[in-house]
Write a protein that binds this DNA or RNA. Structure first.
Lengths: 216, 216
DNA sequence: TAGATTGTTAATCGATTAACAATC
DNA sequence: TAGATTGTTAATCGATTAACAATC
Protein backbone atom coordinates (compact mmCIF):
# COMPACT_ATOMS: atom_id res chain seq x y z
CA UNK A 1 0.00 0.00 0.00
CA UNK A 2 3.00 2.33 -0.39
CA UNK A 3 1.90 3.42 -3.86
CA UNK A 4 1.93 7.03 -4.89
CA UNK A 5 -1.62 8.36 -4.67
CA UNK A 6 -2.63 10.74 -7.48
CA UNK A 7 -4.05 14.11 -6.46
CA UNK A 8 -7.07 13.31 -8.60
CA UNK A 9 -7.82 10.29 -6.46
CA UNK A 10 -7.97 12.41 -3.32
CA UNK A 11 -10.36 14.85 -4.94
CA UNK A 12 -12.59 12.04 -6.07
CA UNK A 13 -12.47 10.33 -2.69
CA UNK A 14 -14.06 13.46 -1.19
CA UNK A 15 -16.76 13.22 -3.84
CA UNK A 16 -17.39 9.54 -3.18
CA UNK A 17 -17.74 10.32 0.48
CA UNK A 18 -20.29 13.04 -0.12
CA UNK A 19 -22.23 10.80 -2.45
CA UNK A 20 -22.14 7.84 -0.06
CA UNK A 21 -23.38 9.90 2.86
CA UNK A 22 -26.26 11.09 0.72
CA UNK A 23 -27.07 7.50 -0.30
CA UNK A 24 -26.88 6.44 3.31
CA UNK A 25 -29.40 9.10 4.31
CA UNK A 26 -31.65 7.65 1.61
CA UNK A 27 -31.43 4.28 3.30
CA UNK A 28 -29.08 2.51 0.91
CA UNK A 29 -27.07 -0.14 2.73
CA UNK A 30 -25.20 -1.39 -0.33
CA UNK A 31 -23.77 0.40 -3.36
CA UNK A 32 -21.88 -0.62 -6.47
CA UNK A 33 -19.23 1.36 -8.28
CA UNK A 34 -21.78 1.64 -11.09
CA UNK A 35 -24.29 3.35 -8.77
CA UNK A 36 -21.78 5.91 -7.59
CA UNK A 37 -20.45 6.42 -11.07
CA UNK A 38 -23.87 7.26 -12.45
CA UNK A 39 -24.57 9.78 -9.72
CA UNK A 40 -21.34 11.72 -9.89
CA UNK A 41 -20.58 11.02 -13.54
CA UNK A 42 -17.36 9.11 -13.11
CA UNK A 43 -16.31 5.87 -14.78
CA UNK A 44 -16.97 2.92 -12.42
CA UNK A 45 -13.61 1.41 -13.26
CA UNK A 46 -11.95 4.56 -12.04
CA UNK A 47 -13.81 4.37 -8.75
CA UNK A 48 -12.78 0.76 -8.19
CA UNK A 49 -9.22 1.60 -9.14
CA UNK A 50 -9.12 4.55 -6.74
CA UNK A 51 -10.38 2.40 -3.89
CA UNK A 52 -8.05 -0.45 -4.78
CA UNK A 53 -5.12 1.86 -4.07
CA UNK A 54 -6.02 1.61 -0.40
CA UNK A 55 -7.29 -1.93 -0.08
CA UNK A 56 -10.09 -4.21 -1.08
CA UNK A 57 -13.35 -3.07 0.45
CA UNK A 58 -16.08 -4.62 -1.67
CA UNK A 59 -17.78 -7.95 -2.25
CA UNK A 60 -17.70 -9.34 -5.80
CA UNK A 61 -21.17 -9.72 -7.19
CA UNK A 62 -22.58 -7.50 -4.45
CA UNK A 63 -20.83 -4.16 -4.19
CA UNK A 64 -19.79 -2.13 -1.18
CA UNK A 65 -21.43 -1.87 2.22
CA UNK A 66 -22.38 1.80 2.40
CA UNK A 67 -21.48 2.26 6.05
CA UNK A 68 -18.25 0.37 5.78
CA UNK A 69 -17.09 2.27 2.72
CA UNK A 70 -17.92 5.60 4.35
CA UNK A 71 -15.79 4.67 7.33
CA UNK A 72 -12.96 3.41 5.15
CA UNK A 73 -12.82 6.61 3.16
CA UNK A 74 -13.09 8.74 6.28
CA UNK A 75 -10.15 6.85 7.70
CA UNK A 76 -8.13 7.34 4.52
CA UNK A 77 -8.87 11.06 4.41
CA UNK A 78 -8.34 11.50 8.11
CA UNK A 79 -11.85 12.82 8.65
CA UNK A 80 -12.66 10.03 11.09
CA UNK A 81 -10.86 12.05 13.72
CA UNK A 82 -11.87 15.36 15.23
CA UNK A 83 -10.08 18.37 13.73
CA UNK A 84 -10.13 21.77 15.33
CA UNK A 85 -10.25 25.00 13.38
CA UNK A 86 -9.31 28.56 14.28
CA UNK A 87 -10.71 31.36 12.13
CA UNK A 88 -8.89 34.69 12.02
CA UNK A 89 -11.01 37.66 10.99
CA UNK A 90 -14.50 38.17 12.35
CA UNK A 91 -15.88 40.14 9.42
CA UNK A 92 -18.51 38.92 7.01
CA UNK A 93 -16.34 36.23 5.53
CA UNK A 94 -15.10 34.95 8.87
CA UNK A 95 -18.63 34.92 10.24
CA UNK A 96 -19.85 32.96 7.23
CA UNK A 97 -17.15 30.36 7.75
CA UNK A 98 -17.83 30.03 11.46
CA UNK A 99 -21.51 29.52 10.74
CA UNK A 100 -20.87 27.02 7.99
CA UNK A 101 -22.95 24.02 8.97
CA UNK A 102 -21.42 21.14 7.10
CA UNK A 103 -18.08 21.04 8.90
CA UNK A 104 -19.44 19.08 11.83
CA UNK A 105 -20.56 16.20 9.64
CA UNK A 106 -16.97 15.60 8.72
CA UNK A 107 -15.29 15.89 12.05
CA UNK A 108 -14.31 19.54 11.78
CA UNK A 109 -15.23 22.08 14.38
CA UNK A 110 -14.45 25.75 14.64
CA UNK A 111 -13.34 26.27 18.24
CA UNK A 112 -11.86 29.77 18.10
CA UNK A 113 -12.29 33.06 16.23
CA UNK A 114 -9.84 35.91 16.45
CA UNK A 115 -9.95 39.57 15.54
CA UNK A 116 -7.80 42.56 16.42
CA UNK A 117 -10.72 45.00 16.51
CA UNK A 118 -11.44 45.81 20.19
CA UNK A 119 -15.06 46.50 19.24
CA UNK A 120 -15.45 42.91 18.09
CA UNK A 121 -13.51 41.11 20.82
CA UNK A 122 -15.96 39.70 23.33
CA UNK A 123 -18.87 39.70 20.86
CA UNK A 124 -20.30 36.40 19.73
CA UNK A 125 -20.68 34.62 16.40
CA UNK A 126 -23.22 31.89 17.01
CA UNK A 127 -22.14 30.76 20.45
CA UNK A 128 -18.45 31.33 19.93
CA UNK A 129 -16.88 34.36 21.59
CA UNK A 130 -14.48 36.41 19.46
CA UNK A 131 -11.01 36.45 21.04
CA UNK A 132 -8.26 39.00 20.84
CA UNK A 133 -5.71 38.20 18.17
CA UNK A 134 -2.91 38.44 20.70
CA UNK A 135 -4.21 35.30 22.45
CA UNK A 136 -3.87 33.24 19.30
CA UNK A 137 -0.74 31.41 20.32
CA UNK A 138 -1.95 30.41 23.74
CA UNK A 139 -5.38 29.29 22.56
CA UNK A 140 -4.14 27.29 19.62
CA UNK A 141 -1.68 25.42 21.77
CA UNK A 142 -4.11 24.92 24.67
CA UNK A 143 -6.93 23.72 22.44
CA UNK A 144 -4.64 21.77 20.16
CA UNK A 145 -5.88 23.48 17.00
CA UNK A 146 -4.30 22.25 13.76
CA UNK A 147 -6.24 24.10 11.07
CA UNK A 148 -6.08 27.87 10.57
CA UNK A 149 -8.43 29.83 8.34
CA UNK A 150 -7.40 33.28 7.13
CA UNK A 151 -10.39 35.55 6.55
CA UNK A 152 -8.74 38.95 6.85
CA UNK A 153 -7.99 41.81 4.46
CA UNK A 154 -5.21 40.93 2.01
CA UNK A 155 -2.59 43.28 3.46
CA UNK A 156 -2.31 41.31 6.69
CA UNK A 157 -3.07 37.84 5.30
CA UNK A 158 0.55 36.72 5.11
CA UNK A 159 1.29 37.96 8.62
CA UNK A 160 -1.71 36.09 9.95
CA UNK A 161 -0.66 32.95 8.11
CA UNK A 162 2.78 33.24 9.70
CA UNK A 163 1.21 33.63 13.13
CA UNK A 164 -0.96 30.59 12.57
CA UNK A 165 2.06 28.54 11.54
CA UNK A 166 4.00 29.73 14.60
CA UNK A 167 1.07 28.73 16.75
CA UNK A 168 1.15 25.20 15.37
CA UNK A 169 -1.22 25.14 12.40
CA UNK A 170 -0.60 22.24 10.02
CA UNK A 171 -3.15 23.40 7.44
CA UNK A 172 -3.77 26.97 6.32
CA UNK A 173 -6.90 27.73 4.37
CA UNK A 174 -6.58 31.25 2.98
CA UNK A 175 -9.65 33.16 1.80
CA UNK A 176 -7.94 36.53 1.44
CA UNK A 177 -7.51 37.60 -2.19
CA UNK A 178 -3.77 37.15 -2.21
CA UNK A 179 -1.53 34.10 -2.32
CA UNK A 180 0.05 33.27 1.01
CA UNK A 181 2.97 30.92 1.54
CA UNK A 182 4.18 28.76 4.40
CA UNK A 183 6.99 26.32 5.18
CA UNK A 184 6.87 22.99 3.38
CA UNK A 185 5.67 21.20 6.49
CA UNK A 186 2.40 23.14 6.33
CA UNK A 187 -0.24 22.57 3.67
CA UNK A 188 -1.52 25.85 2.29
CA UNK A 189 -4.67 26.13 0.28
CA UNK A 190 -5.30 29.49 -1.32
CA UNK A 191 -8.88 29.91 -2.35
CA UNK A 192 -10.30 32.81 -4.23
CA UNK A 193 -13.64 33.51 -5.83
CA UNK A 194 -11.70 35.25 -8.56
CA UNK A 195 -9.77 32.19 -9.64
CA UNK A 196 -12.98 30.22 -9.76
CA UNK A 197 -14.70 32.87 -11.80
CA UNK A 198 -11.84 33.24 -14.25
CA UNK A 199 -11.79 29.51 -14.65
CA UNK A 200 -15.48 29.23 -15.43
CA UNK A 201 -15.43 32.36 -17.54
CA UNK A 202 -13.43 30.71 -20.27
CA UNK A 203 -16.21 28.26 -20.83
CA UNK A 204 -18.72 31.10 -21.07
CA UNK A 205 -16.85 32.98 -23.73
CA UNK A 206 -17.08 30.28 -26.34
CA UNK A 207 -14.31 28.17 -24.83
CA UNK A 208 -16.04 24.86 -24.40
CA UNK A 209 -18.78 22.92 -22.74
CA UNK A 210 -18.23 20.84 -19.68
CA UNK A 211 -19.21 19.57 -16.33
CA UNK A 212 -17.66 21.75 -13.69
CA UNK A 213 -17.12 20.88 -10.07
CA UNK A 214 -13.52 20.76 -9.13
CA UNK A 215 -12.39 20.42 -5.56
CA UNK A 216 -11.95 23.78 -4.15
CA UNK B 1 -6.58 26.94 -33.50
CA UNK B 2 -9.49 24.50 -33.16
CA UNK B 3 -7.52 22.22 -30.84
CA UNK B 4 -9.06 20.81 -27.72
CA UNK B 5 -7.88 22.88 -24.78
CA UNK B 6 -7.13 20.87 -21.62
CA UNK B 7 -8.83 21.99 -18.41
CA UNK B 8 -5.39 22.18 -16.84
CA UNK B 9 -4.36 24.79 -19.36
CA UNK B 10 -7.26 27.04 -18.40
CA UNK B 11 -6.38 26.78 -14.73
CA UNK B 12 -2.77 27.64 -15.44
CA UNK B 13 -3.71 30.52 -17.71
CA UNK B 14 -5.43 32.16 -14.74
CA UNK B 15 -2.23 31.65 -12.76
CA UNK B 16 -0.07 33.13 -15.50
CA UNK B 17 -2.33 36.15 -15.62
CA UNK B 18 -2.09 36.73 -11.89
CA UNK B 19 1.68 36.36 -12.00
CA UNK B 20 2.03 38.67 -15.01
CA UNK B 21 -0.06 41.39 -13.43
CA UNK B 22 2.13 41.19 -10.35
CA UNK B 23 5.28 41.42 -12.49
CA UNK B 24 3.81 44.35 -14.35
CA UNK B 25 3.17 46.19 -11.09
CA UNK B 26 6.85 45.61 -10.33
CA UNK B 27 7.75 47.35 -13.55
CA UNK B 28 8.73 44.35 -15.66
CA UNK B 29 8.10 45.00 -19.32
CA UNK B 30 9.40 41.69 -20.59
CA UNK B 31 9.18 38.16 -19.17
CA UNK B 32 10.39 34.74 -20.25
CA UNK B 33 8.65 31.42 -19.67
CA UNK B 34 11.55 30.65 -17.35
CA UNK B 35 10.77 33.70 -15.20
CA UNK B 36 7.11 32.79 -14.84
CA UNK B 37 7.95 29.14 -14.29
CA UNK B 38 10.24 29.94 -11.39
CA UNK B 39 7.66 32.12 -9.69
CA UNK B 40 4.71 29.79 -9.90
CA UNK B 41 6.69 26.55 -9.94
CA UNK B 42 5.66 25.29 -13.35
CA UNK B 43 7.86 23.85 -16.08
CA UNK B 44 8.69 26.57 -18.65
CA UNK B 45 8.05 24.16 -21.50
CA UNK B 46 4.53 23.68 -20.22
CA UNK B 47 3.94 27.41 -20.17
CA UNK B 48 5.14 27.81 -23.75
CA UNK B 49 3.06 24.85 -24.80
CA UNK B 50 -0.06 26.23 -23.12
CA UNK B 51 0.38 29.57 -24.86
CA UNK B 52 1.17 27.93 -28.18
CA UNK B 53 -2.31 26.43 -28.15
CA UNK B 54 -3.67 29.91 -28.79
CA UNK B 55 -1.01 31.45 -30.97
CA UNK B 56 2.54 32.68 -30.98
CA UNK B 57 2.95 35.62 -28.65
CA UNK B 58 6.67 35.81 -27.84
CA UNK B 59 9.96 36.83 -29.41
CA UNK B 60 12.66 34.19 -29.65
CA UNK B 61 15.71 35.16 -27.68
CA UNK B 62 13.73 37.82 -25.85
CA UNK B 63 10.59 36.49 -24.21
CA UNK B 64 7.13 37.95 -23.94
CA UNK B 65 6.06 41.57 -23.69
CA UNK B 66 4.36 41.72 -20.30
CA UNK B 67 1.53 44.00 -21.35
CA UNK B 68 0.90 42.20 -24.58
CA UNK B 69 0.77 38.79 -22.92
CA UNK B 70 -1.60 40.04 -20.24
CA UNK B 71 -3.95 41.31 -22.91
CA UNK B 72 -3.68 38.11 -24.93
CA UNK B 73 -4.55 35.95 -21.95
CA UNK B 74 -7.36 38.25 -20.90
CA UNK B 75 -8.77 37.95 -24.39
CA UNK B 76 -8.49 34.17 -24.32
CA UNK B 77 -10.19 33.95 -20.93
CA UNK B 78 -12.81 36.51 -21.83
CA UNK B 79 -11.81 38.77 -18.97
CA UNK B 80 -11.04 41.64 -21.34
CA UNK B 81 -14.76 42.33 -21.43
CA UNK B 82 -16.97 43.59 -18.64
CA UNK B 83 -18.98 40.88 -16.86
CA UNK B 84 -21.85 41.63 -14.56
CA UNK B 85 -22.61 39.63 -11.45
CA UNK B 86 -25.77 39.24 -9.39
CA UNK B 87 -25.42 37.92 -5.85
CA UNK B 88 -28.40 36.24 -4.20
CA UNK B 89 -28.36 36.21 -0.41
CA UNK B 90 -27.36 39.28 1.57
CA UNK B 91 -26.09 37.47 4.65
CA UNK B 92 -22.50 37.30 5.78
CA UNK B 93 -21.35 35.27 2.82
CA UNK B 94 -23.18 37.39 0.27
CA UNK B 95 -21.84 40.56 1.86
CA UNK B 96 -18.32 39.21 1.76
CA UNK B 97 -18.63 38.43 -1.93
CA UNK B 98 -20.10 41.81 -2.78
CA UNK B 99 -17.22 43.49 -0.94
CA UNK B 100 -14.60 41.34 -2.57
CA UNK B 101 -12.15 43.82 -4.04
CA UNK B 102 -10.30 41.89 -6.69
CA UNK B 103 -13.19 41.36 -9.08
CA UNK B 104 -12.86 44.80 -10.64
CA UNK B 105 -9.27 44.17 -11.73
CA UNK B 106 -10.51 41.40 -13.95
CA UNK B 107 -13.51 43.02 -15.50
CA UNK B 108 -16.10 41.64 -13.10
CA UNK B 109 -18.53 43.85 -11.24
CA UNK B 110 -21.30 43.00 -8.85
CA UNK B 111 -24.24 45.11 -9.98
CA UNK B 112 -27.11 43.57 -8.01
CA UNK B 113 -27.77 41.83 -4.69
CA UNK B 114 -31.01 40.11 -3.86
CA UNK B 115 -32.62 38.89 -0.67
CA UNK B 116 -36.14 37.84 0.26
CA UNK B 117 -35.95 39.26 3.80
CA UNK B 118 -38.04 42.47 3.88
CA UNK B 119 -35.83 43.76 6.67
CA UNK B 120 -32.81 43.64 4.36
CA UNK B 121 -34.39 44.93 1.16
CA UNK B 122 -33.51 48.58 0.75
CA UNK B 123 -30.46 48.35 3.01
CA UNK B 124 -27.02 48.80 1.49
CA UNK B 125 -23.90 46.69 1.16
CA UNK B 126 -21.13 49.11 0.27
CA UNK B 127 -22.99 51.36 -2.13
CA UNK B 128 -25.20 48.67 -3.59
CA UNK B 129 -28.84 48.59 -2.50
CA UNK B 130 -30.28 45.17 -1.67
CA UNK B 131 -33.19 44.35 -3.98
CA UNK B 132 -36.20 42.19 -3.43
CA UNK B 133 -35.75 38.69 -4.78
CA UNK B 134 -38.94 39.01 -6.80
CA UNK B 135 -37.28 41.63 -9.02
CA UNK B 136 -34.52 39.26 -10.01
CA UNK B 137 -35.80 38.52 -13.48
CA UNK B 138 -36.41 42.10 -14.48
CA UNK B 139 -33.09 43.36 -13.14
CA UNK B 140 -31.00 40.61 -14.66
CA UNK B 141 -32.51 41.15 -18.06
CA UNK B 142 -32.40 44.96 -17.86
CA UNK B 143 -28.81 45.04 -16.66
CA UNK B 144 -27.71 42.19 -18.88
CA UNK B 145 -26.27 40.15 -16.01
CA UNK B 146 -24.67 36.86 -17.02
CA UNK B 147 -23.15 35.59 -13.80
CA UNK B 148 -25.20 34.51 -10.77
CA UNK B 149 -23.75 33.82 -7.34
CA UNK B 150 -25.72 31.70 -4.87
CA UNK B 151 -25.01 32.67 -1.25
CA UNK B 152 -28.15 31.39 0.42
CA UNK B 153 -28.96 28.62 2.88
CA UNK B 154 -28.71 25.17 1.27
CA UNK B 155 -32.45 24.41 1.30
CA UNK B 156 -33.22 27.10 -1.25
CA UNK B 157 -29.95 27.00 -3.21
CA UNK B 158 -31.30 24.88 -6.05
CA UNK B 159 -34.43 27.03 -6.40
CA UNK B 160 -32.29 30.14 -6.56
CA UNK B 161 -30.01 28.57 -9.14
CA UNK B 162 -33.09 27.75 -11.23
CA UNK B 163 -34.30 31.33 -10.94
CA UNK B 164 -30.91 32.63 -11.99
CA UNK B 165 -30.88 30.36 -15.02
CA UNK B 166 -34.41 31.45 -15.97
CA UNK B 167 -33.31 35.05 -15.67
CA UNK B 168 -30.51 34.45 -18.14
CA UNK B 169 -27.43 33.51 -16.11
CA UNK B 170 -24.76 31.71 -18.11
CA UNK B 171 -22.53 31.01 -15.13
CA UNK B 172 -23.65 29.93 -11.67
CA UNK B 173 -21.19 30.10 -8.82
CA UNK B 174 -22.69 28.27 -5.86
CA UNK B 175 -21.38 28.83 -2.35
CA UNK B 176 -24.18 27.02 -0.54
CA UNK B 177 -23.06 23.72 1.02
CA UNK B 178 -24.97 21.57 -1.43
CA UNK B 179 -24.40 20.65 -5.06
CA UNK B 180 -26.68 22.48 -7.46
CA UNK B 181 -27.29 21.54 -11.07
CA UNK B 182 -28.29 23.44 -14.18
CA UNK B 183 -28.92 22.76 -17.88
CA UNK B 184 -25.89 21.95 -20.00
CA UNK B 185 -25.85 25.40 -21.52
CA UNK B 186 -25.00 26.88 -18.13
CA UNK B 187 -21.64 26.43 -16.43
CA UNK B 188 -22.06 25.57 -12.76
CA UNK B 189 -19.28 25.80 -10.27
CA UNK B 190 -20.02 24.38 -6.86
CA UNK B 191 -17.61 25.62 -4.27
CA UNK B 192 -17.46 24.51 -0.71
CA UNK B 193 -15.03 25.11 2.12
CA UNK B 194 -15.66 21.54 3.11
CA UNK B 195 -14.38 20.03 -0.10
CA UNK B 196 -11.27 22.14 0.16
CA UNK B 197 -10.69 21.12 3.73
CA UNK B 198 -11.22 17.44 3.08
CA UNK B 199 -8.83 17.66 0.19
CA UNK B 200 -6.07 19.28 2.21
CA UNK B 201 -6.77 17.09 5.19
CA UNK B 202 -5.45 14.00 3.47
CA UNK B 203 -2.05 15.60 3.23
CA UNK B 204 -2.12 16.45 6.91
CA UNK B 205 -2.84 12.94 8.05
CA UNK B 206 0.34 11.44 6.71
CA UNK B 207 -0.87 11.30 3.11
CA UNK B 208 1.83 13.21 1.33
CA UNK B 209 3.69 16.44 0.89
CA UNK B 210 2.91 18.86 -1.86
CA UNK B 211 2.38 22.32 -3.16
CA UNK B 212 -1.27 23.14 -2.95
CA UNK B 213 -3.11 25.79 -4.85
CA UNK B 214 -5.65 24.41 -7.22
CA UNK B 215 -8.08 26.60 -9.03
CA UNK B 216 -11.08 27.04 -6.92
C1' DT C 1 28.40 37.00 -34.05
C1' DA C 2 27.22 34.75 -29.49
C1' DG C 3 23.65 34.14 -26.23
C1' DA C 4 19.02 33.63 -25.19
C1' DT C 5 14.53 32.02 -25.63
C1' DT C 6 10.82 30.84 -28.43
C1' DG C 7 7.65 27.42 -30.83
C1' DT C 8 7.27 22.66 -31.72
C1' DT C 9 8.35 17.84 -32.25
C1' DA C 10 9.39 13.61 -30.13
C1' DA C 11 9.87 10.95 -25.72
C1' DT C 12 8.19 10.18 -21.26
C1' DC C 13 5.18 9.80 -17.89
C1' DG C 14 0.86 9.20 -15.59
C1' DA C 15 -4.02 8.73 -15.46
C1' DT C 16 -8.25 6.81 -17.42
C1' DT C 17 -10.76 3.20 -19.50
C1' DA C 18 -11.80 -1.40 -21.24
C1' DA C 19 -11.74 -6.03 -20.48
C1' DC C 20 -12.01 -10.09 -17.86
C1' DA C 21 -10.90 -13.76 -14.55
C1' DA C 22 -12.15 -14.32 -9.79
C1' DT C 23 -15.83 -14.94 -6.83
C1' DC C 24 -19.85 -13.55 -4.17
C1' DT D 1 -26.32 -22.49 -11.16
C1' DA D 2 -26.79 -17.83 -13.43
C1' DG D 3 -26.10 -13.05 -12.76
C1' DA D 4 -23.62 -9.43 -10.87
C1' DT D 5 -19.76 -6.92 -9.55
C1' DT D 6 -15.34 -6.76 -7.75
C1' DG D 7 -10.13 -6.30 -8.13
C1' DT D 8 -6.62 -6.03 -11.46
C1' DT D 9 -4.16 -6.34 -15.76
C1' DA D 10 -3.47 -4.59 -20.23
C1' DA D 11 -4.65 -0.98 -23.72
C1' DT D 12 -5.66 3.70 -24.52
C1' DC D 13 -5.51 8.16 -24.00
C1' DG D 14 -3.85 12.64 -22.68
C1' DA D 15 -0.73 15.64 -20.41
C1' DT D 16 3.98 16.87 -19.11
C1' DT D 17 8.74 17.23 -20.08
C1' DA D 18 13.00 17.19 -22.75
C1' DA D 19 15.26 18.48 -26.63
C1' DC D 20 16.36 21.35 -30.35
C1' DA D 21 16.03 23.92 -34.70
C1' DA D 22 14.48 28.53 -35.67
C1' DT D 23 15.37 33.15 -34.86
C1' DC D 24 15.50 37.40 -32.21
Amino acid sequence: MKKRIPDGTIERLAQYLDCLMELKRNGRTTVSSKDIGEIIDINPAEIRRDLALFGSFGKRGVGYDTDDLINRIKKIMGSDEQHKIAVVGAGNLGSAIVSYGKFKLHGFSVVAVFDNDPAKVGQKIGNLVISDLKDINKQMVDKNITIGVVATPPVVAQDIADMLVDAGARIILNYAPITVTAPKSVTVHNTSPLKELLYTLYYLSGGGKRKCSKAG
